[in-house]
Design a protein around this nucleic acid. Sequence first.
DNA 1: TTGAAAGCGCTAACAA
DNA 2: TTGTTAGCGCTTTCAA
Lengths: 343, 343
Amino acid sequence: MARSRDKPFAKATETVRIEDVAKLAGVAPITVSRALQNPGKVRESTRLKVAEAVKKTGYVANPFASNLRSGSSNIISFFVSDLRNPHFSNAMQGSADALEGSAYKLMMSQIGYSEEVEAEALNSVLPMRPAALVFTGLVQSTATRARLRDQNIPVMEMWDFTPDPIDMLVGFSNYEGGRMMGQHFGKCGYKHIAYVGRSQGRGAQRLQGFQEALLNTGASVERIFPMEGGRSLADGKKALGDLLEQFPDVDAVFFGTDTLAVGAIFECRTRGINLPEDLAIAGFGDLEVSGQLSTPLTTIHVASYEMGYEAGKILRNRLEGRDGEVTNATKLFPVTLMARITA
Amino acid sequence: MARSRDKPFAKATETVRIEDVAKLAGVAPITVSRALQNPGKVRESTRLKVAEAVKKTGYVANPFASNLRSGSSNIISFFVSDLRNPHFSNAMQGSADALEGSAYKLMMSQIGYSEEVEAEALNSVLPMRPAALVFTGLVQSTATRARLRDQNIPVMEMWDFTPDPIDMLVGFSNYEGGRMMGQHFGKCGYKHIAYVGRSQGRGAQRLQGFQEALLNTGASVERIFPMEGGRSLADGKKALGDLLEQFPDVDAVFFGTDTLAVGAIFECRTRGINLPEDLAIAGFGDLEVSGQLSTPLTTIHVASYEMGYEAGKILRNRLEGRDGEVTNATKLFPVTLMARITA
DNA sequence: TTGAAAGCGCTAACAA
DNA sequence: TTGTTAGCGCTTTCAA
């Protein structure tokens, strides 16, 4: 039964509904639905009739109606801590590119860096029955992990590695990155080595790999300067000053992030400290600027855009039912030592 | 009429519906709806009863059902050309922060740099009846502009300035930024001035302001090197090499973006060119790195995060009906000359 | 201030 | 392969 079009209902006359298309094509609404969603279940000639009617009317399905009825949506919810971190915005852009042209829409939710916000964000997103969830990071709270495992919804974690992902994972090993840098420092023969950066989470893993590799070469990390909040180049500059003051003997520093390391390099240049003769500096992450400096930074390369793209591709295969044999995809991206000039 | 819970319907038992809350609170479903959406239209004691029932059941409204019925959604659709441009990711983060805690969800759509993609993206978003649209840039196609003006949907444009926005606008004047830099170059007394950057769109406006201001001081832009695609530091390095080769007399360059300018600075350092004695360099945008270099870049500051935040706030006021007297808000952000070292 | 009835536009389930 | 019927969960409309 058609809604009467002469009633002054909100913009009713402008909205093309499936029924309008059906009438024009001379079929039932459900046939239009099938022709659009499952073309295989409809005779080719019917599909063409429908396609023409769709074109003529400019019909686009009302996503709320389909979602309400089918109980599932085409929304992929992206949980990000901070888009100002280029690694995360690169990853998100990568996923967006991989999903380009698909039926899926990207929704962004903030999780900051707290478990509570994470849980709240999830609560507000789940009622939308998203087609998938993407986390730029591992899901922190074990309660949330358990909850997500129960729900039957595809989950992509990124950016870290764990043997026990909720579902899919595209990540890299922070431990391995740290280890490579430790090996490199060992080979270079530095004697008074410092670490500056986070002592929690990913930072802890980088540090652990770094320390273990150094021990194997007979060296060690003499001083650790924990810095939980350092996210700016200015923080890196300041960190270098503090370091030199508190540890004048230092001959090599491993910074937990490139941002800190690059800031430190600028500070060195201001102070007339030569790299790597006077001091060796290394970072982690390989920002664009790191490789372009006149004294390019030695660091660990992390392919953020590519990881985002890969995550989007895997998700897309899974959602579009082309996963073939792969179901519980875990992809470990290799981490690369970029031994450039500074260390 | 309640759906019988014993039918093996998809996860029926897990979903709390408005009816469940209503029963528990001893009211009709519509009253629950009102208590949640229009608390003012319900007696306080009723509101409390409902609130308690909501808490007990953990009820969250199914957004598809509400949207389908009400014909409007709580989705704000963000159109971005490229999140790898830090100005845009900063702006998006700013808007996300401003909308934090509201009922609105951020959806991201790519528009690349083409009018066609822009129109397509819009087509796929409009059926979701978004609460508002945000464009990081002016909407390019005049057809699309007209179409959006017809629709009765709040539109926020950003990042540029036009006297004739579709609806709301938070932007800055590229012309004015260029003009300031032209004035500065004039004051400094440079004789052989070049511009390297886009000659279209925003770049053209920067260049125009730059040229006009220079003419007022009796100087002029001797050479223009159009570069439509340069988006990386490496492009800036290469641009500097080309510039010196094709225009050896140059004593000052204005780059259309900080990325190009910073790349050029690195190249200068490699080549032993002293800034600003041998060559003056200026950029546009004020990236984080620009101010932190050991020879900080002279540039035009653009407050991208703040603009995004402001756009989000204005939008929120409008959507939550707190716009007061302001309806067609246009906010012009000032642009600031950061006269640092390099020019 | 509260409620009953109806229906938003689509698709699952079943039937032909 | 196509169609009929019903109903997803909410909120609009209208009535009390």
